[in-house]
Every structure is written in structure tokens, then in C-alpha cells.
Design a protein around this nucleic acid. Structure first.
Length: 343
DNA sequence: ATTAGGG
DNA sequence: CCCTAAT
């Protein structure tokens, strides 16, 4: 682990950078370079010299202003359809090849609770049989490259775009890093060590899964038109800092006020959950949440658990759940694979 | 604090 | 999603 100390330095630098960025925003000055590199919004005129100095970073970072090469390194997202190009986009020089090992065996294939479908009501509209529904063994293999998934393609178009140019890929990776660092500075709920751990985990994820795993979700949730039924969508449970930004202990009043939230899971959220499960294993909801994947950063560990339960049910019985659910079929194939079910 | 499961 | 029991 030679690069570790380096990463610590880098992270601390970024943390400082974040607070500087915030204060700049507060003053309404000089964010153009940051905007350029992180895809953030331009504020207005800025002072060249200050920005120069700022971008120099602390001593020792003169040429390391922007994403750690490791973060910038991109691989095709797990769920993306096979892309013709993206030949190698090799990581810029930097050694990004350690620990490819730990991915294979250990995690995610352990005690997996099979949610036994408790006597479902309706007779089967469809069943998971190989013949009639295409559960061939290779359809399971091709999970990560199923091009039939038009919905996903749409859903991921954003992140795919961002993998077009290396610059934008960097932006995406940078945003991911910023998210971690930001959480660290803001909420204090992550110690620097925890933040670093999260950062490293996410780096691993980015490296093995591709930048798609890190690209933030731009509100692509399938929120129907007239469906904003009163509930403030933003931060359903982010009232005060806690394990993941605020565990809600609602008062009786609050509970009555908001009867029941309905925040349908977007496809990218679902994808992020599956990525997290791949990474941490089934049942490790808190760990997954600590990865701080942007797409599911607002979902509590319990939310993750519930979603997994639903996915698991759905994967075992397509008749389960809402008829209009948008979970792509190959996601369910993936779930089945995790569950050790025939695909 | 986390997780599983019922509602 | 919410709530609670059990770790």
C-alpha cells in the first residue's frame, strides 16, 4: 500500500478545496475553473490571481489540482450495453491495478436470505421458466451487456455521455470525490478516516465498475406528473446529522402530517443498490450506505433493505409488486444470480 | 446502531 | 414506506 499516504494527502486537500469552494460560492466569486472541472455552476466574475493561487493547491499539489488519476480512470459501467468504442481509455499512467483480487470470491456470495414468497394471491401471469421467458443460462451471463434494456440505456445516457471525454469523466469522478469530502466537512458524521475509507471504496467501485457507478443521479426518478402529493421530496429524512445524514425519529405529529412518503426508486438508484450489494454483500445495508453512492445517498439503510426485499421478491416472482414497475429485466436477472437462482 | 420482518 | 423486535 504505497499510495495510501498519498491518498490521505489528496483527500485532505480536496476537503480543504470544498470549503474554499463553498466560501467562494457564498461570496459569489471565482468558481469558473471549479465549474469547468467539476461541472458546477458558474457564478460570476472571478479574480484570476486568486484562482490561480487557489488552483495551485497547498504546497506539494501544484500539478495535482484535479482528480487523482485513479479517480479519473474509467471503465464501462456494469449495466451499460456493450459499447463499441471505449477501446481501453487506459488509466493515465497511474497504477490502477492493485486489488483486482478481492473482488472475485469473498463478498456478496454469502448467506443470502431467500424471501420465500408467502402464498401470493393472483395466479401466475408469467413464470420464470427458461423456455417461455428466456431464462437461458447465457441470458444470465449477458446481464451486464443486455442491449435490450432500452430504459436503462436512457437512464444511463447521462453517465455514458460523461464517459465520452476523459475530461468529463474526470468531472464525474471529481463530483463523486467532492461528495465524500463534502460530507466529511459538512456533517462531521464521517471522520477523515471514514471518509477516506469511503473514498477508497468508491474508487475501487469506480475502477471495477466504471464511472457510471459514481455519476450522480440528476433527478431521473420516475416521478409521475401530478404525483407530488404533498410530501417534500427533498431529504425525506435528513433533518439532523446522524449515521447517514439524519435518521428520523419522527414525532407523532410529524408522522401524522406526512402520511406516507412515496419516492419511487429510479433505475439508477436501483442500479446503485445492486452495485453496492455487489461490493458489500447482501444484508450489509449500512455498509452500502456508507459507500455514499450519489444515486442512493438519500436512501436509508432500511430503504435499501426494503428495496432489496422487493427486488428479491420480484426476481422470484414476476407477479409481485406493482404491475407498472420499471425494474429492467436484466436487473432481475442479476438479482437472481445473487440469490443463486437459476437464470 | 443495525438488521430482519410484519404491516 | 413505516414500525418494532431483536441483536
Amino acid at each position: 500500500m504505497q499510495g495510501f499516504g498519498e491518498d490521505v494527502l489528496f483527500l485532505s486537500f480536496v476537503v480543504g478545496w470544498c470549503s474554499e469552494y463553498r466560501s467562494r460560492c457564498a461570496k459569489g466569486v471565482g468558481t469558473s475553473l471549479l465549474q469547468r472541472s467539476a461541472g458546477l455552476q458558474v457564478v460570476k466574475g472571478f479574480d484570476q490571481q486568486h484562482e490561480q493561487a487557489f488552483c495551485q493547491g497547498p504546497p506539494g499539489f501544484s500539478s495535482r489540482v484535479l482528480p487523482h488519476p485513479a479517480w479519473a480512470a474509467g471503465l464501462p459501467p456494469l449495466f451499460a450495453p456493450p459499447s463499441q468504442e471505449q477501446p481501453d481509455q487506459a488509466s493515465p499512467g497511474h497504477s490502477v491495478q492493485a486489488s483486482q483480487t478481492q473482488r472475485s470470491g469473498s463478498v456478496s456470495r454469502r448467506k443470502v436470505g431467500l424471501y420465500q414468497p408467502p402464498r401470493r394471491r393472483t395466479p401466475a401471469r408469467r413464470s420464470w421458466t427458461r423456455e417461455e421467458d428466456g431464462w437461458s443460462s447465457d441470458s444470465c451471463e449477458s446481464f451486464s451487456e443486455d442491449s435490450r434494456a432500452g430504459t436503462v440505456q436512457e437512464d444511463l445516457s447521462e453517465s455514458n455521455h460523461s464517459s465520452q471525454g476523459s475530461q468529463q469523466t474526470s468531472s464525474s469522478a471529481l463530483e463523486a470525490l467532492l461528495a465524500v469530502a463534502d460530507t466529511c466537512t459538512n456533517t462531521g458524521c464521517l471522520s477523515p478516516e471514514e471518509a477516506l475509507k469511503a473514498a477508497r471504496q468508491r474508487y475501487e467501485l469506480a475502477r471495477t465498475r466504471g464511472p457510471g457507478a459514481l455519476s450522480a443521479e440528476q433527478d431521473d426518478s420516475p416521478r409521475r406528473a401530478g404525483e407530488m402529493s404533498g410530501t417534500p421530496r427533498a431529504s425525506p429524512r435528513a433533518s439532523r446529522p446522524g449515521a447517514f445524514g439524519g435518521v428520523s425519529k419522527l414525532t407523532a405529529q410529524q408522522r401524522r402530517a406526512r402520511h406516507r412518503c412515496n419516492n419511487p426508486w429510479s433505475i439508477s438508484e436501483t442500479q446503485a443498490l445492486l452495485e453496492g450489494i455487489e461490493h458489500c454483500g447482501v444484508g450489509k445495508w449500512a455498509d452500502i450506505q456508507r459507500l455514499r453512492l450519489p444515486a442512493i445517498i438519500k436512501r436509508s439503510p432500511v430503504d435499501l433493505k426494503d428495496k432489496w426485499r422487493n427486488l428479491s421478491r420480484l426476481a422470484q416472482d414476476p407477479n409481485t409488486g406493482r404491475a407498472n414497475n420499471t425494474v429492467p429485466r436484466h436487473f432481475l436477472l442479476h438479482v437472481r444470480r445473487i440469490l443463486g437462482l437459476p437464470c
